[in-house]
């Protein structure tokens, strides 16, 4: 479809953000992936290894080079910090990131928040536990430009925490804190010190042979009756279901949420970004897009339970019917 200019009459009002790649991809795959992202409708791109410090296809300098390229392509680039910070070497990496002075950083641990506080705008990532407005207010004092809501929060709760008509002041000069919500992808639900992928292959974590590189979308875990349930991605456990808010345009608009995080998957990602852009910014009906996303997503199907405060694994197409534009 032809690209309309941003801010065309049809909308352009939702910002699409590409979350960090949570999997271990080869350098070549990453390069190819971000070349596509550079040409996509996404305006914000989060970069970096958030899961495992042992994954070193990309060195710190490689991420910075990529970040500069994407910025040159007009993207707002944020460097995402590792979630589980245990060792002194993890802390060294984090300090370097906090002091980079060139790009905003997404904090995913209290250590990162401490190191970023007062250094200018930063992003409060989805792994900082902010469950109430009072909690966000605590972090607001430190100067964040944006917060990404924890995955299990409902849209209603997110709206109550930082409503569009009364957002908390955060970043530069007390600019209002923007809200971003995880809107597409398998959800990073849990972190462990233990590597489940290595364990599956009967390997020690420190001698893991980097087997997770063989699973560019994680390793599916199903119940004993074959129901896809979770997905193992190194020390991270993800949902098997792909969280998808394609049908929640009105609810999100009402809640004042204007930023959508789309979490990368190895295949079909450009088409997924297009789907969201068409529905959220170009008035395409959601029902058709939902059917298409159900085809494009990973095994496990679409889920959206968290959006309504229900179990995350639930899928309710109600919102799709609710907008009066259901495809026949």
């Amino acid at each position: 479809m032809t690209r309309l200019p941003q801010d065309a009459a049809t909308g352009g009002e939702f910002t699409l953000a590409v979350g960090p790649v949570t999997y271990y991809w080869t350098r070549a795959s990453l390069t190819e992936f971000y070349a596509e992202v550079a040409d996509s409708a996404a305006q914000t791109v989060y970069l970096g290894e958030t899961v495992c410090a042992r994954r070193r296809e990309m060195k710190a300098e490689d991420w910075f080079d990529l970040a500069r390229d994407l910025r040159a392509a007009g993207k707002d680039v944020v460097l995402s910090a590792q979630v589980l910070v245990e060792s002194e070497s993890d802390l060294r990496v984090l300090r370097r990131l906090a002091e980079n002075g060139e790009f905003q950083v997404e904090a995913n641990d209290a250590a990162a928040v401490r190191l970023l506080a007062g250094r200018g705008p930063f992003v409060l990532g989805p792994h900082i536990n902010i469950y109430s407005r009072d909690a966000l207010r605590e972090y607001a004092q430190l100067g964040p430009s944006r917060w990404v809501a924890p995955l299990e929060l409902s849209i209603e709760a997110v709206a109550a925490i930082n409503p569009s008509n009364d957002p908390l002041p955060g970043g530069t000069g007390g600019a209002p804190i923007e809200t971003e919500i995880f809107a597409f992808g398998r959800m990073p639900l849990a972190f462990s010190a233990r590597c489940f992928t290595a364990r599956h292959y009967h390997l020690q974590k420190d001698d893991c042979a980097f087997r997770c590189i063989e699973h560019p979308d994680g390793l599916l875990l199903s119940s004993r009756e074959g129901e896809p349930f979770l997905s193992m991605n190194g020390i991270q456990t993800q949902s098997a279901g792909t969280h998808c808010l394609i049908g929640e345009r009105e609810a999100l608009a009402r809640a004042g949420i204007r930023r959508l995080r789309l979490s990368p998957q190895a295949r079909n990602f450009a088409a997924i970004v297009r789907c969201f852009d068409e529905v959220f910014n170009r008035s395409e009906p959601a029902a058709g897009a939902a059917a298409m996303l159900a085809e494009l997503c990973l095994p496990g199907g679409l889920v959206n339970g968290y959006a309504a405060g229900r179990p995350g694994k639930d899928w309710s197409p109600v919102a799709l019917a609710g907008n009066g534009r259901v495809a026949p």
């Binding site: 924890p150 299990e152 849990a190 972190f191 010190a193 979770l230 229900r310 179990p311 995350g312």
Partner: peptide, 21 residues
């Protein structure tokens, strides 16, 4: 707990209720 406490939403994924919420 094999998962880092406070960083696990597996229970709410299955049931809607978790340690955090």
């Amino acid at each position: 707990c094999v998962m880092v406490e406070g960083r696990c939403a597996l229970s709410s994924y299955a049931t809607g209720r978790s340690p955090n919420n």
